[in-house]
Every structure is written in C-alpha cells, then in structure tokens.
Design a protein around this nucleic acid. Structure first.
Length: 259
DNA sequence: ATGACGGTGTGGCACCGA
C-alpha cells in the first residue's frame, strides 16, 4: 500500500499537476493540504475519473482545507480534532480496510505559527496539544495508524538548510520540536528516517530568491507510522520533481510504501 | 530592517504563508 502527502497550495491552481502526478504515481491514497477552496468547488468528478472514487473532503474558502483521495473505500471520516473547537479546516481522518486490517489515516495541515510569542504561535501550541491527546484515543481505537501532512515543524538540524541561522525561529523552536517528540512518544515513528536518505532532503522551498535552485529548503512534510506498522514500512521518499513544474506548489509530495 | 514570490479576494491593493 502506498500513501502520499502533498501540500498543493490551492487545488484549483494545482489540479492538472495533481492529476499528472497521480497518473505517474498511482498511490492508493493521496492526502492533500491547503486546498484553499470550499467543498462545493472540490473537483470530485476529475478525481473519480482518475481512479480516486473515494474522497474525504474538508474544504474551506481562501485558506486551509484538507482532503484524502483514495482508490479504496473510506469509512469513519472525521474532521478536525475531537474536543478542540476550530474555525479552520485542518484535519481529516478516515479508516481504510486493507488486507492487513483497518488502517486509520490522519491528514493534517498543522498551524504555521508565524512567530514565537505571537497569538498564532500560541494557537499552534494549543492545537498541537489537542492533536496529541486526540491521537492517543485514535491509536487506542485503531492501533495501525498513519499520521501525514504539513507539520510546519522541522524535527532536527538535518531538516533545515540553515540550522544555526534559523535556530529558535518559526518551524525550528524547541517548543515545536517538543511537540513533535510528543507525537513520537505516542509510539509513532518518522518513516523517512527509517531509511538512509540523501543529505539536505527537504519538502518545501520558498518561492523567493531561487530557494529551490539553491536547495534552501525545510523538511516540514512528514509521514509518521504507529508501532504495528513500523516493521512493515518498505520505503519513504520525497518526490522533488513537481517543484520543477510551471507554477509549482512550494511543497512536494512525500510517499510511503507499507506492506 | 525590509522584501523577495505566489495564492486569495478585493479593488487599484492587503493579507497570509513558511
């Protein structure tokens, strides 16, 4: 089973690229973030025609919005974090019935946080705390769980092009990384780091200052797997190719193969 | 210190992202 995550930064703009990517990478499920469109504008027909007939969509106008596109049926779809009231559409989860049993797939567009000390940073901290508590319950219900998405957190210095210059700035703070560790403490594992990876592997590059060409990026898009799945992970790769497209998203897909 | 690019929604730009 292959699962991918991709922050598309507007599905309206990126739909042709998503369809092209799926044609070349026929994953079982693709988790999207930053749809930037309301549910009624979700391109259901085009995705169904591409083989993704099962979509869990939690859209929002202008900002945020997440979706799971799947070849297999999705059940028990839930939106946002249980017990955390949120105006913003940031989480969609669903269960897939695979030959290896039920797998809970959680797709998140984590809060950016803007700047340490800001109100948005405080929202990020509360959101992360609530996510952890909710995931603990989800894991109790479905031990085979995959958490994917745009985490907006670098876990360690390998995940950033400038660990010294960016120390304790947004995406690099100790507080954010402690929350990331909190997710690992639930029994989740960073699938990417299960394997030897190229140095300076990133999933996001700023549009400005030729950041992609200079590989000034961050690895902030992640795939975490729960303990029962850990030994089943066959590969985890970042696909940089779509960043070379015309009008690319600033993020690229991350793909995991399980089982 | 600021803005750099690209998206949205508006309206002749502002706001947001990371």
């Amino acid at each position: 089973m292959k699962i991918a995550t991709w922050n598309v930064n507007s599905l309206s703009v990126r739909l042709p690229q998503v369809l092209d990517w799926l044609a070349a990478n026929p994953v079982d499920a693709l988790c999207l973030q930053e749809l930037k469109l309301p549910d009624e504008k979700f391109p259901l027909q085009a995705l169904q025609d591409a083989g993704y007939g099962h979509c869990a969509v939690f859209g929002q106008k202008t900002y945020n919005g997440v979706a799971i596109l799947s070849r297999l049926p999705l059940r028990d779809v839930s939106k946002n974090i249980d017990g955390f009231s949120d105006e913003q559409s940031r989480v969609v989860a669903a269960t897939l019935d695979t030959p290896e049993g039920a797998v809970r797939l959680v797709n998140g567009y984590f809060v950016n946080g803007q700047e340490p000390g800001s109100e948005k940073f405080e929202y990020k901290m509360q959101w992360l705390t609530s996510l952890r508590h909710w995931l603990k319950q989800e894991l109790a219900n479905t031990p085979k769980l995959v958490l994917v998405g745009d985490f907006n957190i670098t876990f360690d210095d390998r995940d950033t092009h400038d660990p010294e210059g960016l120390r304790e700035t947004i995406h690099h703070t100790t507080a954010e990384r402690e929350h990331f560790q909190g997710l690992l403490d639930l029994g989740l594992t960073d699938a990417f780091r299960l394997f030897e990876q190229p140095e300076k592997s990133y999933s996001w590059w700023d549009y400005r200052e030729f950041a992609f060409r200079r590989n000034r990026g961050l690895r902030i898009d992640h795939i975490l797997v729960s303990e029962p799945l850990k030994t089943q992970v066959r590969s985890c790769v970042i696909d940089k190719l779509p960043r070379k497209n015309e009008r690319p998203s600033d993020h690229v897909p991350v793909v995991v193969e399980i089982g």
